[in-house]
């Protein structure tokens, strides 16, 4: 085992070198870092609090005092965006991690095993996929109360299903390939084949799908907040700000534009970074390039 170690770390170093060459990915990384730090450091970046109202001011256009304007209750939008970022990043990352942790191994095992095991595992996915999400969430809330961890769980629990199906489809194809068959031939354990050979080879699609899942999850949070599971008012999130902005897009367009813009910039950055990572990590891909 120890013999493999240096080899592994050099793989990581190689990947990092590869990634650094990709300007778009690095730009994405930098922007993401800035946005995340800004959310974390929110209290130090703004003189306002996210709940402080100024009813007489109401919804006002961007100005020197309020860079991005204020919402209908006269709250500073810039501040609410910063704090909202906390929620959205937290939900986006945590729920996606949950879905990855379940979906990837599940799909890989199902696809690799094939036959009866695959059938049973996929039918379980089908069953879960048809469960009425609204009811499920409402019951979870009754049992566990309002709880941010529960929200990650609830979203992750629904998101992993499609992830598992995609991974399984890929693995189904991979397991007949030469490198897997040779691994079997030299007597590698099933576990080792799945985690050392198969999963690295589906890394590309995992990364692509992850970058698709994160925005989806960030928006899903608004529905959970509607059901009362998400964050509670007056706290906000990007999804909620966009939703609120959308409902007043004609009267107060700035309430939609800046949250939507920040959300988009985040997603673009994530995608560039994701593509860069995919290129850097994918063993076949980097081999093909070099």
């Amino acid at each position: 085992m120890s013999g493999h170690k240096p080899q592994k770390s050099s793989l990581w170093a190689d990947s990092w070198k590869q990634l650094r060459k990709n300007h778009a990915a690095i730009a994405g990384l930098i922007i993401l870092t800035i946005l995340i730090s800004a959310s974390i450091l929110a209290p130090w970046l703004t003189p306002y609090s996210f709940e402080e109202q100024n009813l007489a001011l109401g919804a006002s256009c961007p100005s020197l005092e309020h860079w991005l304007g204020t919402d209908t209750l006269g709250r500073d939008l810039f501040t609410r965006l910063l704090y909202g970022g906390r929620t959205s990043f937290l939900v986006g990352f945590c729920a996606t991690v949950v879905s990855l942790l379940i979906g990837v191994p599940y799909g890989a095992i199902s696809g690799y095993s094939g036959g009866k095991v695959d059938s049973v595992m996929m039918r379980i996915v089908d069953i879960l996929y048809t469960m009425p999400f609204t009811i499920l969430v409402i019951i979870l809330m009754v049992v566990f109360g309002r709880n941010i961890l529960l929200m990650f769980g609830a979203i992750g629990a629904i998101q992993w299903l499609v992830m598992a199906r995609i991974i399984r489809g890929q693995v189904l194809a991979l397991r007949k390939q030469a490198f897997v068959e040779s691994a079997i031939a030299i007597g590698a354990s099933r576990r080792r084949i799945i985690f050392k050979h198969i999963i690295p080879n589906v890394m590309g699609i995992i990364i692509v799908y992850t970058t698709l899942t994160i925005p989806h999850v960030m928006l899903m949070e608004t529905f959970l907040s509607f059901l009362g599971l998400g964050i509670q008012p007056p706290m906000s999130s990007w999804g909620l700000l966009i939703k609120d902005g959308a409902s007043v897009m004609e009267t107060y367009p700035w309430l939609l534009i800046s949250p939507a813009l920040v959300f988009s910039v985040t997603l673009f950055s994530m995608n560039f970074l994701g593509d860069g990572l995919r290129d850097a990590l994918d063993p076949r891909f980097s081999k093909g390039r070099s």
């Binding site: 698709l212 925005p215 989806h216 959308a246 939609l256 939507a260 988009s264």
Partner: peptide
């Protein structure tokens, strides 16, 4: 095309729908 695709993902239907109607 990927930028457009990303815009599609960034635009949830509760924004895109009302925007198209408008």
């Amino acid at each position: 095309p990927m930028g457009l695709a990303m815009t599609g993902i960034c635009m949830p239907s509760f924004v895109l729908g009302p925007l198209l109607i408008l």
